[in-house]
Write a protein that binds this DNA or RNA. Sequence first.
DNA 1: ACCAGCTCCTGCTTGC
DNA 2: TGCAAGCAGGAGCTGG
Length: 276
Amino acid sequence: MPELPEVEVVRRGVARALKGKTVRRVTVLRPQMLVHTSPRQLQRRLKGRALRRVRRRGKVLMLDFGDHMLLVHLGMTGLLLAQSRADPLPSHPRVILDFEDNSRLVFDDTRTFGGVELVQTDRLADAHMLRNVGPDVYANSFDGAALLRSFEGHRRDIKTHLLDQTHFSGLGNIYACEALHRARISPRKRCHRITPEQARRLGQAIRRVLRAGIEAGGTTFSDYRTPEGREGQFRRMLRVYGREGRRCKRPGCPGTIRRIVQAQRSTFYCPACQRG
DNA sequence: ACCAGCTCCTGCTTGC
DNA sequence: TGCAAGCAGGAGCTGG
């Protein structure tokens, strides 16, 4: 599922392939996926506009077309594919941007948990898709101290807190589990019981695991692909996620990875070395 | 504050 | 082999 590293890889790929190119036509195949936006608006506001740059906040992509920005959330199974018009379409195309030079950007999403929203650039702050989306967890301002501050007033499990996008955005199930394992903190540890030293370790683990994820091109379990259609390679580096019943990868740790459910989501962790 | 439980959706896996 | 139920989950919602 696309989390910060996957979305960052998509951001870079889309920018590399399409920056500076002008939209010729917009095709909406599944209007239900548009958030506070009509197909007409998309066509009218984007046609003839050039893609200036691609930004990202948490898991939300922002395609900057000058006066307007196109926000894209990939949800669970969303893909942004940069193709040529001669390429075959993927299996579940939902929105297509055709560009003047015969390249195209296809938003494909099997399970349709994603979304697309058009906003005026000077009203970006009002965007529905950015409501409840806090600062990016990969920004320079993020560290253990900032993480510790976000715990104030919260008594819930740390794992559940990390998935909440309002304080910091970008972490999803995979990287939250991986960061906690690297920091040797139990996913069940309550926020208010995290020590400053643990917060420092966790902040560092989050940065490192995200960087490694980006460098590997993200994690492909089944659906995720880069804009070029390639699989991410981080899966082989996962230490806990999806590894229930298998040996802990920490050198010398005799533990076996367990799966539990927190806030209706699977959590993977090692009971032997995540005791903090 | 925060959780359980539900919804959206499709495709894969499991069980009979 | 075939069918149906179960399951996966990001995020928003309601009710407790």
